[in-house]
Structure formats: C-alpha cells, structure tokens
Simulated assay, not measured.
Amino acid sequence: MSLQLVRLLQLASPALPVGAYTYSQGLEWAVESGVIRDEASAGRWVADLLEHGIGGYEAPLVAALIAAWQADDHAEVARLDADFLASRESAELRAETAQMGFSMRRLLRDLRDDSLAPVLAVTDAQPEVAFPTVWAGIAARWQIDPDAALCAYLWSWAENQVMAALKAVPLGQAAGQRLLARLGRRIVEVAAAARQRPEARWSNFTPAFAIACARHETQYSRLFRS
C-alpha cells in the first residue's frame, strides 16, 4: 500500500506538469462579475460545483474510466473519452482538457515506466484525449485503490479552484486552508455517491458555470486561460 499511496500523492500533486494552475474554469469571470467576492461566496461557488457539476458527471466518469482501464476495455475507454470531450460547455473548457490530456500523454513517455505502456499505446492512437482519461489510466496501471483515486482526483480539482480564488479575489492563505478543510469533508461523500451513480443519472447541468466559462472567453483582463 505504501507505494500506491506515494503514486497517488504524485498524481494529485500540483507539481504534475499539466498546467492546471493556468485554468480557473470560469471562476475568474465569477470574480469579475461580483458573484465571488469573499471567502464565503468562493466557498459556495466551489462547493456547488463539486456537488452538482464535477460530482454529478466528471467524478462518476472517472470512476468508470478506472474500471474500464482495469478491465482492459479499450473500446469503453474510447467511448467515455469521447463523451467527456463532447460534454465540455465552452471552447476554453474543451481546449483545457485536451491540452492537459496532451501533457499527461507526454508525461507517460517521460516517466519511462513500462507498466504504463498500455495506456500510452491506447491514448496515442487517438488524435486528442481528455485529461481524466489519461489520469484514470495511470491510476489503474499503478494499482491505486479506486476509492482513494477518485477522492484524490476531486481533491486536486478543489485545490486548483481554491488556488485560483486566492489569486483572483484575492484571499489569504488561511482562508484558502479553511475552504479546503470544508471541501475536504464533502469530497468523501461526493466520491462515494459518484461511484454509485448509474450512467443514466450522470449530469453536469450547471447553467451558471457554463455561462461563466463562455463569458470568460471575451473577458478583457484575465490571469487564467479558462
């Protein structure tokens, strides 16, 4: 278990060279518009997205991707990858996951880990691949517990959102840690619910989020790429 834990920490680390820190996923526009203005409003925004956005669609999809990789069901991996790419609500969001997927695919080569060769072979056959597809493949090949992997995936997303809020609002470091502590308690519940959610009930219907992402594309002054 010790090696799996270390590998999981590596996958969840902000040092992962995929450029996640350059994206806010619409949060920057929410700050610009005044929807997010302080710690409390930032917490509401991220928590709502955690539960109703990423928790309702991306999280169960990641769980399904891990299971597909474990079963060597490459057709299912390709189907889920195409579904995720099609689900992106704006041009920036689609470019984000494609760019991060490209960077993860490059990392597969740079790690020089023979156990990851099947993931590279499958993803290299696709013209573009979504970030969660490659991430889930690495988690599966490294034999990381699926429950722990999903919690780590959600934690990494939440941490990136909080870091974006710290820069854009801005908020202090203590506020960021309070937000992460509250979000951390919810992540376990969201991950557990996601793993039990049948595909017919997957949904990322979050209109305010979609509007924020679309409007960010024409925002005049910005720090982030989405």
Rank of each mutant, 00 (worst) to 15 (best):
S13C: 11
L16W: 05
L16G: 08
G19D: 12
Y23R: 09
Y23T: 03
S24E: 01
G26P: 02
L27Y: 00
E28F: 02
A30H: 05
A30R: 13
G34E: 09
I36E: 05
E39D: 02
A40W: 01
S41Q: 05
D48G: 05
E51T: 14
G55S: 05
Y57N: 11
L61V: 07
A63S: 13
W69R: 06
W69H: 08
R79L: 14
L80W: 07
A86G: 07
R88N: 10
E89A: 12
R94W: 03
A98N: 00
Q99P: 04
M100A: 14
G101M: 04
L116V: 09
P118Q: 05
A136T: 13
I144T: 12
D147Q: 09
C151V: 13
Y153W: 14
S156D: 01
E159D: 11
E159K: 03
Q161F: 09
K167T: 11
A168M: 04
P170K: 08
A174F: 06
L179Y: 05
R182S: 15
G184A: 07
R185V: 15
R185E: 08
R185I: 15
R186P: 01
R186W: 11
E189S: 07
A192P: 07
A192K: 15
R195S: 14
P198M: 08
P198R: 12
R201P: 02
W202P: 08
A214W: 04
E217R: 09
Y220I: 12
R222I: 06
